[in-house]
Design a protein around this nucleic acid. Structure first.
Lengths: 264, 264
DNA sequence: GTAGCATTGTGTCATAACGACGCATTAACA
DNA sequence: TGTTAATGCGTCGTTATGACACAATGCTAC
């Protein structure tokens, strides 16, 4: 977690929260969100850039004293994306005693004209809970908080070094996504309502990082019986217009309980 | 987590730890272990019974200020089982704000002649990290700590109500075990070095809670190429002596990377 | 000892799933 | 209107799966 993302209540400024944090938040615990979207046939991740840091980081936050951990994650997502009802999965806890060099934070704060003492709550050790979220790209309005320079989508392949251990957290999220692809409605949550078979295939290929045979993919997906083929096609592409599909959620959920059998 | 299991250092008594806890441990964070074993063709779980509680609970503990979360789990496991090098997997964080009614704890402590104030660190809110462990049943020496009445194996089917939300934690551990059966060396860690095909099958059947065809099971398992068939048989049973097998760890690990393909 | 019995070892067969690939169709563009 | 490139739809041989038959073996009971 970046040390000052998503930690503000709507009523309080960043500076106030920095002082009050110890009374507001559950100590020791933070959370970080890996927010996935799918756009232009690429998997994207929403990152934020704090003013005082050199690197981009995952949007994160802390847990209010009386707040459920999961509600805190929902709150952070709402703040950064503007969305409610986000598909959210906890995937790992990062609890190394030396996840971060907190001294860096003091220096960064100082650069920003903020002095914090060595016993400040923000400099204490935090164990962070990783959540990943799947969102419909087009519905998201990336929203930086007032302490951020930026909040924007990054192509998965273009992400370099991240703040603290955030790259590891991201990698673990991707690994989890892969393992859960046959057990959770991942396609449903990343794609728009209507989508084409090539789009669905590209999503699978991106997540699994493999390439698949177009025709076999189609046979298998339709074989699951979780798709409804529409009579519309997606015109405007340079070639033959592919048919649009939607998920048949009843059958999709039913199939996922068993896990979508077979390979990949 | 039971509120006073596994929180003692070797040097300190329970009562001392109760006082020092706030300075020793990372606040807000606890961990609970679901320790699985396999014995007499049944899946077992190691539970502890605290003197002051009415219910059995999962062995758990807290995290020292400078200790990695994972090391804390390893420490708890070592204390309860006597084992090093335990197969350990983090599976979920339980972060509901109202996981427990801490008032119950005060009453229980009082029964035991221990008075703690309303601001005592043990009565604060804890977010607990669930770990499951797989151990070789025969190697374990269940060891209660000095504040426990008992520490012993329970058959999975005979476990009734547990302390706080520990039943939910156990259920989630089982669910995770099921999902990871084809991706982690679960058989290897639960079974003794040498085992028979019927034993391996029973393990699968117990974890997945289904029954499988004996002959198809054997074909599939041998088909993976992860087993070495020995020339010995397990004599002493009432009928034909089954052959013994061991895992071919090289091939096992290699196969798990892809996931053991196919059904179940 | 030996017959009975329950369990394990091994194999068969039809069916379904899978991987690799061919060819016709169609929308945009030149 | 022909070219191009992506999509729709189908084939074929191989492999994996589910269901089941029968022989082999080690204890037990007489």
């Amino acid at each position: 977690m970046s040390y000052f993302r998503g930690i503000m209540t709507p009523q309080k400024t960043f500076r106030e929260t920095l002082i009050d944090g110890e009374t507001l938040f559950q100590p020791s615990v933070s959370l970080d969100c890996v927010i996935f979207g799918f756009h232009e046939n690429e998997l994207k991740v929403l990152l934020v850039k704090a003013k005082a840091t050199d690197h981009w980081s995952l949007p994160g936050g802390f847990v209010f004293k009386e707040e459920d951990l999961e509600d805190a994650a929902i709150r952070v997502l709402k703040e950064r994306t503007g969305l409610n009802d986000i598909f959210l999965q906890q995937f790992h806890v990062f609890g190394s005693a030396k996840r971060s060099d907190w001294n860096v934070h003091r220096i960064n704060f100082k650069k920003d004209g903020i002095e914090i003492g060595p016993d400040h709550w923000l400099l204490k050790r935090f164990i962070t809970v990783g959540y990943y979220a799947l969102v419909e790209f087009a519905h998201v309005k990336p929203t930086p908080d007032t302490s951020s320079e930026a909040c924007s989508w990054w192509d998965l392949n273009e992400i370099g070094e991240l703040f603290m251990d955030h790259k590891q957290i991201l990698d673990k999220a991707l690994e989890t996504l892969r393992l859960q692809l046959n057990h959770l409605p991942i396609g449903y949550n990343l794609l728009p309502q209507k989508f084409t078979m090539p789009e669905l295939q590209k999503l699978y290929e991106t997540i699994l990082n493999i390439s698949l045979d177009r025709r076999n993919f189609q046979r298998r997906m339709t074989g699951f019986g979780i798709l409804k083929k529409l009579k519309e096609t997606r015109k405007g592409g340079a070639h033959r217009a592919p048919f649009l599909y939607t998920f048949d959620m009843r059958k999709y959920r039913k199939a996922l309980k068993q896990g979508l059998h077979g390979g990949w």
